[in-house]
Design a protein around this nucleic acid. Structure first.
Lengths: 213, 213
DNA sequence: ATCAATAATTGCACACAGTGCATTTTTGCA
DNA sequence: TGCAAAAATGCACTGTGTGCAATTATTGAT
């Protein structure tokens, strides 16, 4: 009988995850210290103790490492996990919760998440990359949003195409709300835990729909 | 008395605008023909009959030329022009109109606009650049949206910070709606003039707010 | 412990984007 | 025509990102 290799990820995968985290940490701390342009892939690799070539085996781009961009498979996993969770009060809360689940670093390392908020404020150019991640995995996420909308019984009359569009717009709205909520809550140097972000995001979305309706 | 050099743009500026347009056209047609990755700045410059170095005197990036990204001053101009226009029915229509005014190519060249819609569908990565343009000029645009929201009397109770957030979310919502409207209307190979896009965008926003409210 | 298969790491060469700087050409105007 | 400003260009350089082949580490089985 072998050791339970199926339960634990195995040495190989553990090392891989560790290396990945080391690169992310190096990237974040260097950009935080020296700025975005000043930080090179070479420097990140050196600090993370890997070769520059290995860096690109783990991430598609410099920004990818800085933001800890996850690939399609990882998002898929998190979406599935989310859908298994207990239901929320309404569609808005559910979509916001979904986004927070996706953006949150696995393992829930609070420090790096807070640092990344800081980075996004100091270097707004990074938001384009974050947005790109969203467009790449947009299919999955928007689809999930559509499922959520259906689940909460909104827009029964809409046809399929409209539902897709509505899901996309809802996603954009909630995504922006989350980003803004993170931004303002990061400025106040309160703890800014996930729950607070959630509450503020939902409030912002409601305020918006209430205002322009 | 000199010739009215203040009224007409003058030969120099006319030539500059023409060169700019030539580069944009070259970029769009090459990407349309060969794809995004296959099209190099070198090739674009050659077709536009300028040196690669000159290319970067006109645009900050390859994507900039492909999308015809305008700089802050140009956006400022278009925003001012928009604000002088007659009022719209409500805030949503006004914001959508603002976005269309900004995205529309000056001179209203229908062909290149249609081509760009095609490009955005074929190469979704480009949306990140479009988004980046939006974040760079985001200050101005979001501010204008805030003005619009005030003008149409929404959210009287909101404090300044909330108004900014609400404006940002409204902008994201309308921007996505416009993008989706362009996308679907480009698929149907109808004419897809600006008015149709306007109508469809507004309808999508209303459907969304109505659904999740 | 040993060994073969497999996966990860690395080095190297390369293509391309983008920038700074000095030089040449073009344009506007007197 | 001739002069000053603006535009175009050539050149050298940094940095990102990729393909490929060689090297090293990990795994599972004997």
């Amino acid at each position: 009988m072998t050791t339970p290799t199926l339960r634990t990820p195995g040495l190989r995968d553990r090392k891989r995850a560790e290396t990945r985290a080391r690169i992310e940490d190096a990237a974040v701390s260097l950009v935080l210290r020296d700025g975005l342009e000043q930080t090179t892939v070479h420097a990140i690799s050196e600090l993370a103790d890997v070769s520059p070539r290995t860096f690109f085996n783990y991430f598609d781009s410099k920004d990818g490492a800085i933001l800890g961009i996850r690939n399609t498979a990882m998002v898929e996993e998190q979406v599935a996990e989310f859908l298994a969770q207990p239901p929320h009060r309404d569609a808005i809360e559910a979509v916001v919760a979904l986004l927070l689940a996706i953006f949150d670093a696995p393992g829930g390392r609070l420090t790096i998440r807070k640092d990344r908020m800081e980075l996004l404020q100091r270097h707004p150019e990074l938001m384009a990359s974050q947005f790109e991640q969203l467009t790449l995995t947009h299919g999955q996420i928007a689809e999930t949003v559509a499922v959520i909308l259906k689940r909460y019984g909104v827009s029964q009359s809409a046809d399929a195409e409209d539902l897709t569009s509505i899901a996309g717009i809802t996603l954009a709205m909630c995504g922006t709300a989350v980003r803004l909520a993170m931004s303002t809550l990061a400025q106040d140097h309160t703890h800014a835990d996930t729950e607070q972000i959630q509450i503020r995001s939902v409030a912002l979305v409601r305020a918006t729909t209430g205002s322009i309706a």
